[in-house]
Design a protein around this nucleic acid. Sequence first.
DNA 1: AGGCTAGTGACAGTCACTGACAATTGACAA
DNA 2: TTGTCAATTGTCAGTGACTGTCACTAGCCT
Lengths: 222, 222
Amino acid sequence: MDTAPRPGLRERKKRRTRDALVRAALELFTSQGYERTTVDEIVEAVDVSQRTFFRYFAGKEDAAFAVQRMSESHFVEAVRQRPAHETPLEALRNAVMANWDTIGEAIEAVVPIELHMRTFQLIESTPVLLAAHLCRQEGLEEEIARVIAEREGLDVDADPRPRVAVALFGGVMRLAGRLWGAGDDFSVAALRELTASHLDQVIPALARDWRTDRSGGVPDTR
Amino acid sequence: MDTAPRPGLRERKKRRTRDALVRAALELFTSQGYERTTVDEIVEAVDVSQRTFFRYFAGKEDAAFAVQRMSESHFVEAVRQRPAHETPLEALRNAVMANWDTIGEAIEAVVPIELHMRTFQLIESTPVLLAAHLCRQEGLEEEIARVIAEREGLDVDADPRPRVAVALFGGVMRLAGRLWGAGDDFSVAALRELTASHLDQVIPALARDWRTDRSGGVPDTR
DNA sequence: AGGCTAGTGACAGTCACTGACAATTGACAA
DNA sequence: TTGTCAATTGTCAGTGACTGTCACTAGCCT
């Protein structure tokens, strides 16, 4: 395993340009709004041609999700490496939590965490970005459903449970994210707390008897 | 209540133009692809100026969802009018089914049903449209969650169950839609069948004892 | 050193979308 | 019936995202 076999000057330069573009883009997006920021402004801040921007990113939108992508793939990996004795929802919950602790440095290498947090809110409050976010979210859920199915030795296409479990999980996560964005404490800790409390409210409810217990968080209500 | 107090020539003309634009747009989108269809092609087919198109629709995307919007608002109304004795998920299930029977004519007044079905597939297979679809879907779910909460006399913000139930329902619907699009029978009946069978598989599973019954469709699997 | 090639910039062009203003046309009253 | 008002529409010009092309620069490799 050679994770860093001397990147070479060219590679280093590319990455520096790319990171600079991401930083500039997020900084501008969060400070003056996504729509009100032009690609020209971004490339001017980094001093490269517009054409170069579009060689690094498929579009303006793509730049906004650059950091999210890191976090997401990191999360999938975290789920994959959860011990087999955990139930699916436990594994997912623990993976999110662990992710918050370990992803920090990787993000900070590109942009300040604080900027990443502001970007998160930006996405939630910008229709075009929210749409794109939900779409990639669905792709992520499909991927995770497959990981879960494999863990449990199930066939994703035959047994709907992995997908349902992941959809439920995703729904709760999204709800927590929305509430965090609507609140007034925009710290990482606050998001962590909120996520944890929501997950801890739902998971035990699913493990309990859903039929006789009416106070849990069960959808068979009347 | 006067639902049709003589629309007036002006109104009739507006509606005719709008419908023609929708028809032309969907026809072109489904036959040559959404991205590969320009607004100029659409307006040329109807023989109006491009500016007029953008006065009727917020964007190219907006035209693609014109019929969906009808169907959705019709569905919300259907849910609202379900008898109170049905459980939330029963009400949702029955509303979808009833919707398939009654929405037909309203759609046919604008575009052929068959075109609407092809549009559905188009949305599922076009990333930009899918993103927009998921976004508006989320909005719809929020609206329905409120309707359900009201039916059951609950507070949406205090009790998560309405939202969870609706999210679950939405997830199943989306899954059915995806499978239909991936299959080879593109008829309305096929989608109806698929939707029904999926719903009928999940709803009883939720009503049963989720803890002891391991074959249902329950997310607390191991 | 010198050739190879990836990465870049400059330029022109397409397409979605918008603001402004003028021309048209249905609505309605005198 | 006719004249006025207001809604609809067309024309024109402009912005901004995004793409293809081509020449050029700069790491890389022998």
